[in-house]
Design a protein around this nucleic acid. Structure first.
Length: 490
RNA sequence: GCGGAAGUAGCUCAAUUGGUAGAGCGACAGCCUUCCAAGCUGUAGGUCGCGAGUUCGACUCUCGUCUUCCGCUCCA
């Protein structure tokens, strides 16, 4: 007989995840009826619930488990000067050029600087200096044609292809810009934030003073960020609009190393607590540091498409606060009563991609198991999510749709519906209903059968093991709570 | 952005030198069933990714475009 189609039929593991996510209501391509929008996705009912649970878990593990961390929710729009101070306006808009033969893409300034360095080493420092001067002028003027002419006239070759077969120079601004105000010509350009961190930095003093925080302390935030990625790929791994969960931890200068190590360890533990095997996780120190970072490490997960960053932990020094001081001309310092001194705190950042974490859980959770049942081989597909994060905690199922079982089951639904997100289904065979719940990751199913009518007990089936046990109806609520609340993780 | 592959129902796929789309699964409704997707009956889903062109006629040929995957590239 025909076997139900499962995602296991796909040869590509990421395709299998995408197909499953779509088919079972986790993620859809954005505006799909119009052909989709590149690198933008919508969360469906189960995906939205899963994401919300994850955010709740993270939020609580930051703000409730740590007395010295508070949360905020800053606006997506910020004063344009913010992005000058943060460095995003400059470093997010590098002119790039492609070599048509090697298909390699380069930053124009990097190519020219390399050439200048080469000339300087050959003793031709004057020419090197001239080149850099010219480049800076062109960059300032945003003269892309001039930059292209300079590349060509300098005779710069692609290090790989050894040719000068260049495309035009193009500007890739990674920040989305829009206009504030109704009159476009008078309006300021404002940007959709490319990271949530700046909303924390500009509020540093507000939070410190109004919540009476003492260094060391942290500010946590969950929110959307936007990056106009040149290449956005791998499903929800790199999206143009994405959700960050990050915490900036302010420390006394000189203690940043200690706190960097502290948070590195804390954050890694958090993933292990989620049940992610340590073999699939790794800590990857950065080789090339971002413009603000003193030390940085990524927590990476072995996705089907490779070992990739899920969370970054950065030692940002006082880069951000100092720059905001300079640009805003407001003092952003902390008076430390312990040492009787004013200083600009150093910052340790933990920043994780919420959507990446959702993808991680889908990758980690989607299981195709071959089971043998009465001599027949079958594939059993289920989504092994941590119970505390599952969109639906329990499904309540009358064994058959008669003899008063649905009514009895509905009573239980009424008792539990406020305590747990739950599902009720009475159509089709019990096996099919179990399977459907397995596919969306529901950890428990409760079945009301004929015995329930005589002794008020139900069977409780566990998703992963498929084992059943009988429980008195009165014990169900506490039993489930023990299994599915967030404390099972934290 | 470059190169490769693909796009037909919710999913997996079919449709003979171009003649106005079908199946299985799934969904839904009803029946049957005391525990792991497999019984019976019925119903609803598609302007064949989108737009042009060629043609009497295009799912089928040509061009463009969008989206996705793979590789490269990039990456705070």
């Amino acid at each position: 007989m025909a076997q139900a189609t499962t995602a296991a039929d796909h040869s590509n593991p990421l395709q299998a995840i995408i197909a499953h996510a779509k088919e079972y209501g986790f993620l859809y391509p954005s505006s799909e009826i119009y052909g989709g929008l590149q690198a933008v996705y919508d969360y469906g009912p189960y995906g939205a619930a899963l994401k919300r649970n994850l955010q709740d878990l993270w939020w609580r593990s930051m703000t409730q488990l740590h007395q010295n961390i508070v949360g905020i929710d800053a606006a997506i729009f910020m004063h344009p000067h913010t992005w000058q101070a943060s460095g995003h306006l400059d470093s997010f808009s590098d002119p790039l050029i492609d070599n048509k033969d090697s298909k390699k893409r380069y930053r124009v300034d990097a190519l020219l600087e390399a050439q200048a360095t080469a000339w300087a080493q050959q003793g031709n420092e004057e020419a090197a200096e001239d080149l850099l001067q010219t480049m800076h002028h062109l960059l300032q003027a945003q003269d892309l044609v001039g930059l292209h002419r300079l590349i060509v006239s300098t005779g710069i070759q692609c290090p790989v292809a050894k040719t000068s077969n260049w495309t035009a120079v193009r500007q890739f601004n990674l920040m989305f810009a829009t206009q504030a105000g109704a009159l476009e010509e008078k309006a300021d350009t404002i940007y959709l934030r490319p990271e949530t961190a700046q909303g924390i930095f500009v509020n540093f003093l507000n939070v410190q003073k109004t919540a009476r925080m003492k260094v060391p302390f942290g500010i946590a935030q969950i929110g959307k960020s936007f990056r106009n990625e040149i290449v956005a790929r791998q499903f929800i791994f790199r999206m143009r609009e994405f959700e960050q969960m990050e915490m900036q931890f302010f420390v006394r200068p000189g203690t940043e190393s200690y706190w960097f190590d502290y948070w590195k360890e804390q954050r890694l533990k958090w993933y292990l607590a989620l049940g992610i095997p340590s073999t699939r996780l790794s800590l990857q120190p950065h080789k090339h540091l971002a413009h603000y970072a003193q030390e940085a490490v990524d927590i990476e997960y072995a996705f089907p498409f490779g070992q990739k960053e899920v969370e970054g932990i950065h030692s940002r020094t006082d880069f951000d606060l100092r720059n905001h001081e300079t640009h805003s001309k407001k003092k952003l310092q902390y008076f430390d009563p312990e040492i009787n001194q004013n200083y600009t705190p150093y910052v340790i950042e933990t920043s994780l991609g919420c959507d990446r974490l959702v993808l991680l859980l889908l990758c980690q959770g989607l299981v195709h198991e071959t089971v043998t049942e009465s001599g027949q081989q079958k594939t059993r597909t289920y989504l092994k999510l941590p119970p505390a994060l599952a969109p639906i905690k329990v499904a309540i199922l009358p064994l058959v749709k008669k003899d008063g079982l649905p009514e009895k089951a509905q009573k239980l639904v009424a008792e539990l519906r406020l305590a747990f997100p739950l599902a009720y289904e009475e159509n089709q065979s019990i096996g099919k209903r179990y399977a459907r719940q397995d596919l969306i990751g529901t950890p428990y199913c409760i079945t009301v059968d004929h015995q329930t009518l005589t002794d008020d007990t139900v069977t409780l089936r566990e998703r992963d093991s498929m084992q059943q046990q009988r429980l008195p109806i009165g014990a169900v609520r506490n039993y489930l709570f023990e299994k599915v609340n967030l404390q099972t993780i934290l």
